[in-house]
Simulated assay, not measured.
Amino acid sequence: MNESLPVFPYRPAEPPRVVYRFDMKKPDGAEGVFSEGFQPAGGLFDIWRHAAWYSNPARLAPTIYSYCDGFVGTSSAPINSANSFLKWYMGNCRGGTLDALISSLGKRFQGMRSQAKLAENSILMKGASKKIADIQRAIESTKMIAPVGNNYRVSGWLYAIRTNQYFIGVRENTTRGRGKFVTDIADQIDLEGWLYPGPISGKAVCRAWLAFLQFADPKAPGAISSMVIDQRHQDHGGSTPDTVSPFKEGGWRGLIGYHAPMVDANKTKCLTPGSEGFNSLLQGETWDDERDSSGQPISDTHFPFGTPSDVETHTLSFAGTAEI
């Protein structure tokens, strides 16, 4: 076992009943959110990388990890979910005029598509990227950026999602002993954020509002001045929290990384949790089965350190820091 990898069991916390996500995708239709839900780009689970690829305004383009990310990001604060979305797509694009901004965004999207293609065919993750369609949707959305008074406006949708016990609290997993792993991006992390390890089904999405993000200066479009929410919402009848555990055979194993390596020393294997390379490190380890309320094992689902309620009683970590 490699003792130097900054990888730990996730710390469980009780999520709020509802969390939010901003997206360009519409709620209705065969490919709408009410039908498809939210899909992660890939299957890697590194909380530092998840935050870093959109929170650092100095980055001209997201790192390749963003196209392999296994988390679906949400937040208990609607404005935070919108900020995260806008930062990822607009980054540090600048323009003295709206035309200049759209030109700058065009170059960014071109680079993003190239990165997505690399991830899609990368040895790091097989079939990692589902972001290409999202990027194309974002390109189309730039045509709808329009001046409104002294502001510029981007339209999209704010979604409410019913949570289950498997949502991972960003605050719980980036503070206390783990805070030292995120010091360089600590002021950018959404501490109201809740990450889901895998896809969120459409049935868990309970409501959608048309929303408009307004920014005052095309030189800094990533800074939202306000979010206007149309109260004429669309409800998704019969919505319920997801009941399927993300702990599946070949799926998530309850481990999250903190800037874990994307490649090993030979640059042939990814060592971030969720990758084939990382999972090979766990071969031969003994894991506890997840159990239902009657104490009977549930087939094909696994908690690597017991149930969420007793994860903290286990001390296994790859960084040799049992108190974290």
Rank of each mutant, 00 (worst) to 15 (best):
D235L: 14
H236A: 06
G237S: 10
G238T: 12
G238K: 11
S239F: 03
T240D: 14
T240N: 13
P241I: 08
P241D: 11
P241R: 08
D242V: 03
T243Q: 12
T243P: 01
V244Y: 07
S245R: 00
P246R: 07
F247I: 02
K248W: 09
K248P: 03
E249D: 13
E249W: 10
G250N: 10
G250T: 04
G250I: 01
G251C: 09
G251H: 05
G251I: 02
G251F: 07
W252L: 04
W252Y: 15
R253A: 12
R253I: 09
R253C: 09
L255N: 04
I256W: 01
G257T: 04
Y258F: 13
Y258C: 05
Y258A: 06
H259T: 11
A260I: 02
A260M: 06
V263S: 11
V263D: 02
D264Y: 06
N266R: 14
K267W: 06
T268S: 15
T268E: 15
K269A: 11
K269I: 04
C270I: 01
L271F: 09
L271D: 00
T272I: 13
P273G: 08
G274R: 06
S275K: 00
S275W: 05
S275I: 00
E276N: 13
E276K: 13
E276L: 09
